[in-house]
């Protein structure tokens, strides 16, 4: 049993816009799961499963690149939804991103508006945020 059958979307390329994992649905299409849209900007996080009608997103910047956040979403989720899965390098040079997702492991630390060591999984995105990875 292996993944990646021909014709199926492969794993997202690191850090490419619009190649994030599938979102649980899209605005205006309740009940219709769709895979991601490689090469297109990330879709809104509507959530067909919960029949969401999300408010218009707002832009934040990640290393200067604009991405869209839904009000209330965490920085970590916004990064993931935009195909960015690794945003910190340890002292030994190892890449890190989300792990525990609930604020316990401190692996997902990120710099926002120059403020370092914020947990991406617990920090809600705000309009105009400048996220720095590295």
């Amino acid at each position: 049993m292996t993944a990646g059958h021909p014709g199926e979307p492969g794993p997202p390329a690191p850090g490419h816009p619009g190649e994030g994992p599938p979102h649980p649905g899209h605005q205006g299409e309740p009940g219709t799961p769709r895979p991601g849209h490689p090469g297109e900007p990330g879709p809104p996080h509507a959530g067909h499963l919960v029949s969401a009608r999300p408010e218009p997103g707002f832009p934040i910047r990640v290393d200067g690149r604009p991405v869209t956040a839904v009000p209330g979403q965490t920085i970590g989720a916004v990064l993931y939804a935009n195909g960015i899965r690794s945003w910190r390098t340890t002292r030994a040079g190892r890449p890190r991103g989300l792990f525990c997702g609930i604020g316990v492991c401190f692996d997902c630390l990120v710099t926002v508006n120059g403020e370092a060591s914020l947990r991406a999984c617990r920090t809600e995105a705000r309009p105009g945020d400048e996220v720095t990875t590295g």
């Binding site: 649980p24 895979p35 989720a77 939804a81 989300l98």
Partner: peptide, 17 residues
Amino acid sequence: GGAQALLKGDLVVAGRT
């Protein structure tokens, strides 16, 4: 729990596969 939190709390799926 982390994959579950990302899905329940932010409606983002951890991966394609």
